[in-house]
């Protein structure tokens, strides 16, 4: 982990001035304001995102077969569409592999156990692992796991596994560059003036255009009626 501690300087807090910061952020990737160590970390973290799921990165918690099944399931959960690529194109399998290694045994057991069950069940029904099932067979299996409200009671463990996996895939995808663009999340930037966020048309659609003034009028009226006004303290009580 890169250290964020720097050496003593004569003036703490001195350094970046706003204009410089705006310039830097406007011109290039925000990473350029980071200390060198963090920037190196950045490059390393971005690498798996651009590699495809089959590019065989060093695995940290899953074996190769589990990794490939995760990639397959991830793309069932978040496939590509006209706005963005699929979960594996966003590097989600590598994210999950790292996440399981980092979170420790309890989560790893849950996910790897779910994968083991999935292959077991596919072998029972279709005589091969999930990854070698036909698209229709895979869809059947996923439909058993993906709908918490209508799933069969005997599939409750599979539903819990898939809930966990779905949330991991969503977390991995939407915290990646592809996911941020997909939402889209438009922040993480310096702006010169704050105008409330939502544009006037959105506020109008929500019926909030006059809300601030209305609230002020109401507050002043309530206070005029004697509510929320300061009352004198009683005489000091001796303990």
């Amino acid at each position: 982990m890169p250290s964020r501690k720097s050496q003593p300087s004569a003036e703490p807090g001195a350094g970046l001035r706003r204009r410089e910061l705006l310039k830097i952020i406007g011109l290039g990737p925000a990473a350029s304001i980071l200390p060198a160590a963090a920037a190196a970390e950045t490059a390393a973290a971005q690498a798996p995102a651009s590699a495809s799921a089959t590019a065989a990165p060093q695995l940290k918690s899953l074996n190769r077969q589990e990794f490939d099944t995760i990639a397959l399931l991830s793309d069932w959960i978040l496939p590509a569409d006209e706005r963005s690529g699929s979960a594996s194109q966003a590097g989600v399998p590598a994210f999950i592999d790292d996440w399981l290694a980092f979170q420790g045994d309890w989560l790893s057991a849950e996910i790897r156990g779910g994968l083991a069950w999935l292959d077991l069940e596919c072998n029972r029904l279709y005589k091969h692992d999930f990854s070698r099932c036909s698209t229709a067979e895979q869809k059947k299996m996923i439909d058993r796991m993906a709908w918490p409200h209508s799933a069969a009671p005997e599939d409750s463990h599979a539903v819990a596994f898939f809930n966990r996996l779905r949330n991991l895939v969503l977390g991995g995808f939407y915290s990646s560059p592809m996911g941020v663009k997909d939402l889209p999340y438009l922040g993480n930037q310096m702006i010169p003036e704050w105008n409330g966020g939502a544009p006037p048309a959105v506020l109008a659609r929500l019926g909030l255009t006059e809300e601030e003034e209305e609230n002020q009028r109401w507050l002043r009226q309530r206070q005029a009626e004697g509510h929320w006004v300061q009352r004198p303290l009683p005489p000091a009580r001796r303990s």
Partner: peptide, 24 residues
């Protein structure tokens, strides 16, 4: 504790994918 420079040691403007484990 150690010295801390509020400007140089800031993580402002970093994205999740620029941090270990997405900043978890």
């Amino acid at each position: 504790g150690d010295w801390f420079d509020t400007a140089k040691d800031s993580t402002m403007m970093m994205w999740p994918w620029q941090a270990p484990h997405r900043g978890a």
